[in-house]
Simulated scan of single mutants.
Amino acid sequence: MDATNTLTNTLSPPPARTGRIRPGRRVADRALRLSCLVATVVGAVVLGSILLMLIVEGIRGFSPSLFTQPTPGPGSEGGGIANAILGSLVLTTIGIVVATPIGVMAGTFLAEYGRTSKLADVIRFLNDILLSAPSILIGLFVYTLMVRPMGTYSGWAGGVALAIIAIPVIVRTTEDMLRLVPGTLREAGAALGAPPSVVITSVTWRAASAGIVTGIILALARIAGETAPLLFTALNNNSWFSSNLMGGIANLPVMIYQFALSPYPNWQGLAWAGALLITGTILALSIIARLVINPRRSR
């Protein structure tokens, strides 16, 4: 009997210690919590200060003429940024229209047809490179590809540069959303005799439509404030652009960059107003993306 009790006590696990934490662990936990709290407060203060300064300075430049008149000349008073707003809308529209079908189709190929193929791995690798590539390199690439052969800056070159920036975002989001669709839905469509193309367009795309639209909106928010690629492609001007989009085309990012560095107070005020406008637009697009991807939680 004693041998049996000794064997049982040896094999049984030791009793769990409840409510006893080593002092060193307790100190480390409190130090980590405090460091996280300090980092959060510092980040919130910095971001809040930037937004507060942007709101205060930007509101001063708001007026009805801001949305009705083109940008003024050097040293002149008044004027607005209507041509820059319209130019940005045109450039972002070209960019997102070009990027959306390419990005959605490429993401669909990676998720549905080339899950484990070597070609898909190469495409994912190149997509990751484009996703993290500096936008100024894309601007230089489009400058060499389009601006130099054409002999002039153009809105088309600017739209292509923005499309190249938006494509990786849409590809990654589309692939991730399609991978979240349960395989049983695909099997149900195949069981009904539908070919893979019909299953993709009628089942998987519909199931992942909210996520795909969110990726498109996020890509739109990404390219809305890009400055570097437009410096090499669309540049800027202080008048309305031509209908063929050839020559420099006014846009908000480059206008903010040029006017903020100028010595003219009127230009600086317009730069603050444009920065506030483009920040509010990006914020609105981000909120719309969150509402689209999770409508139940937003309610």
Score class of each variant (00 low, 15 high):
Gly151Met: 11
Gly80Lys: 00
Val46Lys: 03
Asp2Ala: 02
Gly211Thr: 02
Ala161Gly: 04
Arg17Phe: 01
Ser243Asp: 10
Pro134Val: 05
Ser239Pro: 02
Val45Tyr: 01
Ser243Leu: 13
Gly159His: 11
Ala157Cys: 01
Ile81Pro: 06
Ser286Asn: 15
Ile55Ser: 03
Thr93Asn: 02
Leu140Glu: 05
Ala106Arg: 06
Thr10Arg: 08
Thr116Trp: 04
Asn266Met: 07
Ala207Ile: 02
Gly73Asp: 15
Ser243Trp: 13
Pro253Glu: 05
Phe141Pro: 03
Asn251Met: 09
Met53Phe: 01
Ser135His: 10
Thr152Arg: 15
Thr201Met: 10
Leu276Glu: 00
Tyr264Ser: 13
Pro229Gly: 09
Leu91Ile: 10
Ala210Glu: 12
Gly80Tyr: 05
Leu37Asp: 01
Ile136His: 07
Met1Phe: 03
Leu230Pro: 09
Gly189Cys: 12
Gln258Trp: 07
Pro14Ala: 11
Ser239Cys: 02
Thr40Leu: 15
Thr40Trp: 09
Ala219Thr: 04
Glu175Lys: 09
Ile59Gly: 00
Ala16Met: 06
Ser209Pro: 00
Ala31Leu: 15
Pro13Cys: 06
Ala273Ser: 15
Ile85Val: 15
Thr281Ala: 14
Met1Val: 00
Leu7Asn: 04
Ala194Lys: 15
Pro101Gln: 12
Ser286Glu: 13
Val97Phe: 14
Phe259Met: 15
Trp205Ile: 14
Glu175Thr: 07
Gly215Pro: 02
Ala273Gly: 10
Val254Asn: 05
Leu54His: 06
Leu218Cys: 03
Leu162Trp: 12
